[in-house]
Amino acid sequence: MTQPRKLTRFWRIQTSTQAFLFLTPALLLLGLVLLYPLLNTLWLSLQHKVLIRPDRDAFVGARNYIKAFVDPRIRAAALHTVVFTVGSVGLKVVFGMMGALLLNVNMRGAGWVRSLYMLPWLVPSIVASLVWRWIFHDQFGIANAMLQSIGVPAVNWLGQDATAMVAVILVDIWRGLPLMTLLLLAGLQMIPRETIEAAMIDGAQAIQRFWRVILPQMRPTLIMAGTLSLIGTFNSFNIVYVLTGGGPAHATEILVTRVFRVAFQNFNFGYAGTLAVLIIVLITLLTSVYNRLLNESGEEVQA
């Protein structure tokens, strides 16, 4: 009797060792591309390191962090990042939900519509942003041509603070909406039809069905899609960089474009490392706030 038990224990150890062996390549890869850069950035953030002045490299402890907290440019960039991210993700969730509800209808050619709907997401963001830069061009852009054709005066889209911010948010929504819609559509299709049918039999109107039946069941999807979108938008470098370069006069400068400037125009890698660490902290905070909000609203609905 003891023999087989010993055998199982042996196999148990064996399987866990095996599992670990199988995981090793993945762990090594993760360590190489995630853990090492992260630790290296942390280490960098505690140093004075300007590439063009290697003679001044030194360990400075928290000095870069103190500088970041009093740097008015960083404060402005953080504010713009929040406006940009909250505006873009909020509208993406709202319009994504609308789009998902529309696309969820079973009709002829729905597959085609869904595929076409995905197009903006398939265009490389640099290409898309370059095209949008021309669309918003003050003199040659089609946006102003269309406005003027219906009698609205031309808008200096990328040359003024507010409209430049609107423009980058619009383009970010244009690009991010398909993925958001796709994820929400998948979520919608996972909702058991019985719950909706039951609500219909109970006499719930379409709007009531949406708020009381569909939305509560969409919570896990919203958490997942929203978090992904939040992180993606927060780091939406290409669109802002190509469209406005952070201008005019820093009006659309977000944290990631600021980091780019610090790192690759001033070659201040130490300070850029500090800012990168702060971005990680800020993203974590934003996502946890978003998730908590959703969880709380979920509890309310259930109550």
Binding site: D138, Q139, A154, N156, G159
Partner: peptide, 15 residues
């Protein structure tokens, strides 16, 4: 032109 703040040198050529 009002768009001066987003005008690159290449844009000025086009104008």
């Amino acid at each position: 032109p009002a768009s001066a703040l987003s005008t690159k040198r290449n844009d000025s050529h086009q104008m």
